[in-house]
Computed example of a mutant assay.
Amino acid sequence: MSSGTQPDGSGKPRVFPTLWNNGRAAFAFLAPAVVALAMIGIFPTVFALVNSFRRYNLAKPRDPTPFIGFDNYLTVFNDASFWGALGRTFTFLITVVPIQLALGLIIALLLHKPGLSGFKLLARLSLVIPLATAPAVAGLIGRLVFNRDFGVANAVLALVNAGPVEWLGDTTNAFIAVALMDIWQWTPFCALVLLAGLTMVPNEVEEAARLETRSRWQIVRYVQLPFLLPSITVILILRTADILKMFDTVFTMTRGGPGAATELVSVYIQRVGFRVFDQGVASAQAILLLILTIILARLYIKFVYREI
């Protein structure tokens, strides 16, 4: 008997609506994911977009929430503290991402070299440890590492008769400490993505390049780098989006202090929305941040991404 048929009461084969059955099965499997995406991603975004056009004070839930047009956005544009937090965020971005890319490329090139298979396996497993650490836990680790009295950082400095340094109590040092924790956590991600990109380089092309020149830099620049541009684009997009919404590590490590030294834009939005309780202005800030992230992603794709 052929697939998708079975005899009916008259003995004649009856064709099941196989395509319809497969469609219902696919819907049954996809429905939980679609519902979760709608509840976790789409609904909060739409809710924030609606709130950005209303006067909404979280401390006064019984008050009306009238539509006020673009007043919240005008408030954001005139908010010097918001632009200061955004400036600190971009300073953080252009500080840590190039370092992560450079260190990640060095690690990826070392792991891409032939030989030492056992060492490479161990190195790859160790790279997963920082990635598996939750951002809030990374912030707590940072508080311990950079503690003035018993932190590891000052203990290392004491070995060379330096310090102790007031890491988290000084504006510049606190910014550096948060940056170092972010570099520790996300350099392995860059290394693994770039290592995957290096596997796309044909072996015969690399071997021919090594015969033509002994300069390692020229091989990286002219042979391997063109194949790495898609991976670099992915890293830039993901790391930019992550830093623009970076909250857990900063909040658990410094709470945005001292003063506003480490108050990145996401920490500032949280303060406006859940300490000042102005959900309308906080929603407008979040929507502007989302638009900025999309614009930067498009710029990365336009100016960095290339296909070989």
Results as ranks from 00 to 15, higher is better:
199 T>M: 12
205 V>N: 04
200 M>Q: 14
196 A>P: 00
201 V>Y: 11
189 F>G: 00
217 W>A: 13
188 P>N: 08
186 W>A: 13
200 M>I: 07
221 R>Q: 12
210 R>S: 10
190 C>P: 05
220 V>C: 09
191 A>R: 07
207 E>G: 05
208 A>W: 02
212 E>R: 06
185 Q>S: 15
209 A>I: 11
214 R>F: 11
208 A>V: 00
188 P>E: 10
213 T>G: 03
208 A>R: 01
208 A>P: 04
199 T>G: 14
196 A>D: 09
202 P>W: 06
211 L>K: 00
212 E>N: 08
184 W>M: 08
194 L>P: 01
193 V>A: 06
214 R>S: 15
213 T>S: 11
201 V>W: 10
192 L>R: 01
197 G>S: 03
216 R>D: 14
203 N>W: 00
218 Q>L: 13
196 A>K: 04
185 Q>V: 13
191 A>K: 08
221 R>E: 11
185 Q>N: 12
199 T>Q: 14
201 V>D: 10
219 I>K: 11
218 Q>H: 06
190 C>H: 02
210 R>F: 03
184 W>N: 15
208 A>N: 06
218 Q>P: 01
199 T>P: 01
210 R>Y: 04
217 W>K: 00
216 R>P: 00
204 E>K: 01
221 R>Y: 06
215 S>L: 07
196 A>H: 05
189 F>S: 02
219 I>W: 02
198 L>Y: 00
195 L>P: 09
194 L>N: 06
